[in-house]
């Protein structure tokens, strides 16, 4: 028997420690990101307090005038940071995206899981994956060149006809750069996420359950509606939350088609908006001109709000999706039995 030399034992220990350090790096990054963003937000939190979440005005103040002291923080005269329009813009555009994307993704996932086989199935799956891999600036480019003109000339005028039922749908359509186009672009970006997750969940529904449904004389549609969808309900909610997190955090595509509104709450479906992520990207140049650095801190607080929102949705989503993956094993047992 060959004995393990002490050198290879040491190598083993070194390897264990090295891999352990590498494995902890994502946690380290997560902690450092949160820490830095929180620390840098403190001046802005002291300046604005809760008004940050409820005020409409985002104004760096007069950068040429003298500094004034407000709430114990020196800032240019007239500085006020209110993020309400951006929070509203983020929530509104992502909810519109979900309203469009969730039904479409569910239906596509049903087709992918139950209606196609073999080559067609793998081709369709590849196509959906490809959609997830397209850079967001390229989707934004398509949004500017194709989608916004289409919304402005066709879809918008069509939707204004229902304006007498839902007042939010009426009003001038404008250039097409706004809430609706942002929602559509975001929908295109979250469809692959929700579709892929839901398809995986649908494929895990035990075949016995579906066969049971068919044996009862259900149509294939009723099997999906009454057996498969209830079975994956929890995971499906997780998949939607996952898409929501992505939609709220998406920057470039929205920045390109949102119309970059500031100090302005959306009045109708076609209003220009701005999301938190887009504002952070958009306000860089102006933030750097502020001698008091308050604009930098305010953007940091905006990043903090965004981080908290997306972390919450992601936590809920992962817990739900992972839990229903756990029940899969129980389901496999049924299948084997």
């Amino acid at each position: 028997m060959k004995r393990v030399s002490s050198r290879s034992k040491i190598a083993d220990q070194v390897f264990l420690v090295a891999t352990g350090l590498c494995a902890s790096s994502p946690i380290l990054f997560l902690l450092v990101i949160t820490g830095i963003v929180v620390v840098q937000s403190i001046p802005s939190i002291r300046l604005m307090g809760w008004d940050f979440l409820t005020s409409v005005t985002w104004n760096m103040g007069s950068t040429y005038g003298a500094m004034t002291v407000k709430n114990g923080v020196p800032v240019p005269a007239g500085a006020s940071y209110g993020a309400l329009p951006f929070i509203v813009g983020t929530l509104a555009s992502s909810v519109i995206a979900l309203l469009i994307a969730v039904p479409i993704s569910l239906l596509t996932a049903m087709i992918l899981a139950y209606r196609v086989r073999g080559v067609v199935k793998s081709a369709l799956s590849i196509v959906v994956e490809l959609l997830a891999g397209i850079p967001s600036v390229v989707i934004g480019l398509w949004g500017i060149v194709v989608l916004a003109p289409w919304v402005s000339s066709s879809l918008g005028p069509l939707l204004t006809h229902v304006g007498w039922v839902i007042p939010f749908f009426s009003g001038p359509v404008g250039t097409g750069m706004g809430l609706l186009t942002s929602g559509l672009v975001l929908a295109l970006m979250v469809v692959p996420i929700i579709t892929a997750t839901t398809r995986d969940l649908l494929e895990q529904v035990p075949i016995l359950y579906r066969e049971g449904g068919i044996a009862l004389g259900m149509t294939s549609w009723e099997v999906v509606r009454l057996i498969c969808l209830p079975y994956i309900k929890e995971g499906m909610i997780g998949a939607v939350a996952l898409g929501w997190g992505r939609a709220m955090g998406e920057t470039m595509a929205v920045l390109m088609v949102s119309g970059s509104a500031i100090n302005y709450l959306p009045q109708n479906l076609y209003s220009p908006i701005s999301t938190m992520a887009a504002v952070i990207a958009d306000q860089l140049d102006s933030a750097m001109t502020d001698a008091s650095h308050m604009a930098v801190h305010a953007l940091s607080e905006l990043a903090l709000v965004l981080l908290v929102l997306t972390l919450l949705t992601n936590l809920v989503a992962r817990l739900l999706v992972n839990r229903s993956r756990g029940t899969r094993r129980a389901g496999m047992g049924v299948k084997a039995g």
């Binding site: 450092v32 955090g249 920057t251 990207a281 990043a303 965004l306 981080l307 997306t310 992962r318």
Partner: peptide
């Protein structure tokens, strides 16, 4: 992987 990329950039 769910942290928005703009937050990573700003960090």
């Amino acid at each position: 992987s769910g942290v928005p990329s703009i937050v990573i950039g700003y960090f």
